[in-house]
Structure formats: C-alpha cells, structure tokens
C-alpha cells in the first residue's frame, strides 16, 4: 500500500477528480465570463460581438464605476480593521481569561453561524429610525438629536455601517484562528520576557504578536480577497444605497447583469473583479513571502 502511494501516478489519480471539479466550477466560469464580456447581450437578443467596447465603456463612460471601485477599496480596508483587528482583540481578551472562556468564545462565534439575511434583518431593526430602534433609543437618552440618526440612509455612513455589520458577522472566525495561535506561543518565551521585566502589555507587543505575525498576514490576505467579492451584507442591508453610496463591485456587477439585463457588460465587470483579485493575491504573495531560512 505504501508503495502504491509513493507513485506519482497514484497521487495524480487522486488529485485529478478534485482538479476536474475545480476547473469545472471555478476556472471554466471565469473563462466563460471573460469570453461573454466581449459581447452585447440582453438575454433575448442574438449576442453581438463588440470587442473591448464593454471595457472601454466601463472605464471611460460609466459614472458609477470609479466611485464604486474606490468604495470597494475603502470597504476592504474597513473589513481588515473590523475583522482582523476585532478578531485579534477578542482573541487577546479571551486568552487572558481563566474562567468562562468557552462561554465567551461561543458567544463571540455565534454571528458567524447566523445567516447574513438574519443578521441584516436584526441590524435593520436595531438601527431603525421610524419606528425608533434600540440603538437610537439609547442614543436619544444621551442626546435627543441622536435619536434621529439614520445610520443606513446617510450616504457618508451607509458604507461604514455595512462594513461594521459584516465585520461583526465574520470577526468570530478570525478570533478562533488568532486564539489558537496565541495559546500556541511557547510558555518559555513569555517566562523569559517576564523575567526580563516585561509586563503583560509588553509581552503581548514584543513577544506574542511578533510570534503570530504570519497568522496575522494570512488573515489579512484572506479578508482582502473576501472583501473584494463581498455581496450579501451590503445588498441585503442597504441594497447598495442610498443611491450607490454603499455599492460594491460585486453588487454593481449583479445589478448591471440581472437588473439592467446587460449580461456582456456585467461579465466585463466580473472579469475586472477577477483580475483585481489576482493582482492582489500576487501582490500579497510577493510582499508577505516568508523570509528564507
């Protein structure tokens, strides 16, 4: 049996089905979508080849594209702050607990397993203005003017609120990863630092965080890529609005394809999203490549 698994052909025969499925469900749609982006098609008509027209229109004539691209970058940065930063803070707090740790761990992880639709519904009610939701009721007790803050419909706030809700939903995942990394920091390192006179904060900054640096980077890369494809929370919470103030590339692509029935144009946006994700992945691999030795 050991001999069988030492052969490359055997290993290949195990890898091939997975590769075939992955090609069918990931690579083929990407290539097909890129191919569609060179056509003009509304779902009824005959497809018309129009070369790079969709891309030219996207980059030069679409008044929404550039603002939405910038919003997607801002959203990504906010996601890194909320998900990686939030997850790390929770993990640090958890690792400092000696009693009831598992209860808090479960509580912080619950949003991860709740569906996005339910989370959005909860936050819509919490942040509601008419009727006044819990958040504004509490704020209204502090300052009556704050009772009327329309969190989801003020253009400057809507994107941040979407990022906050998505961060709340996902930070539990990163908390678990960071927590596992933090408890794996060798005790002798911490003891050595303590003997050298480091307090708890100093231990954290100078010992624990540098030790889990690669985990932090890996999580940043994960969040980076996921955020560029974010769709559900902003779509369900604000539908990209008001106007396009919380629109992201993925929901923009969806609306152009399925609402405006510009399937070729939507495919062009999808191709741009894929290209950006590839560029980001290559960038991250180069910048965060582990040092040799």
């Amino acid at each position: 049996m050991r001999g069988l698994f030492s052969k490359k052909s055997t290993i290949l025969s195990f890898l091939l089905p997975a590769l075939a499925i992955y090609t069918a469900v990931v690579f083929f749609p990407i290539i097909w979508s890129a191919y569609q982006s060179f056509f003009d098609w509304n779902g009824f008509s005959v497809k018309k080849f129009n070369g790079f027209d969709n891309f030219i229109r996207l980059f030069t004539a679409d008044r929404n594209f550039w603002p939405i691209l910038i919003q997607t970058f801002v959203y990504t940065i906010l996601q890194i702050v909320f998900q990686v930063g939030g997850g790390l803070i929770l993990a640090i707090l958890l690792s400092g607990l000696s009693f009831g740790r598992s209860i808090f761990q479960a509580v912080f992880y619950i949003p991860v397993i709740i569906s996005s639709a339910a989370i959005c519904q909860i936050f819509t009610k919490l942040l509601s203005v008419s009727p006044v939701g819990i958040v504004n009721t509490i704020l209204g007790l502090i300052n009556p003017e704050w009772e009327m803050i329309s969190w989801l419909t003020i253009p400057k706030l809507s994107l941040v609120m979407c990022a906050l809700v998505e961060g709340y939903k996902s930070m539990g995942t990163y908390m678990v990863i960071f927590y596992a990394a933090l408890i794996a920091v060798p005790d002798d390192l911490i003891e050595a630092a303590t003997i050298d006179g480091a307090n708890a904060f100093r231990c954290l900054v100078s010992v624990k965080l540098p030790y889990i640096r690669h985990i932090i980077i890996a999580n940043v890369v994960l969040v980076l890529n996921n955020s560029f494809r974010s769709f559900d929370i902003p779509y369900l919470l604000t539908a990209g609005g008001p106007g396009t103030s919380s629109e992201l590339l993925a929901s923009f692509m969806y609306k152009r394809s399925f609402s405006s029935m510009q399937y070729g144009y939507g495919s062009a946006i999808a191709t741009v999203i894929v290209l950006i994700c590839f560029i980001l992945a290559i960038f991250c691999m180069r910048v965060f490549r582990p040092e040799e030795g």
Binding site: P242, S245, K255, S259
Partner: peptide, 14 residues
C-alpha cells in the same frame, strides 16, 4: 434600472 438607482440618489440628496 437607472431610474430605480437615480430616484434613490435623488431622494437622498445625492
């Protein structure tokens, strides 16, 4: 679709 998007922008003062 543009009308749908624009009326939301319009009522939001955008």
């Amino acid at each position: 679709q543009a009308m749908d998007d624009m009326v939301k922008e319009f009522v939001s003062g955008m």
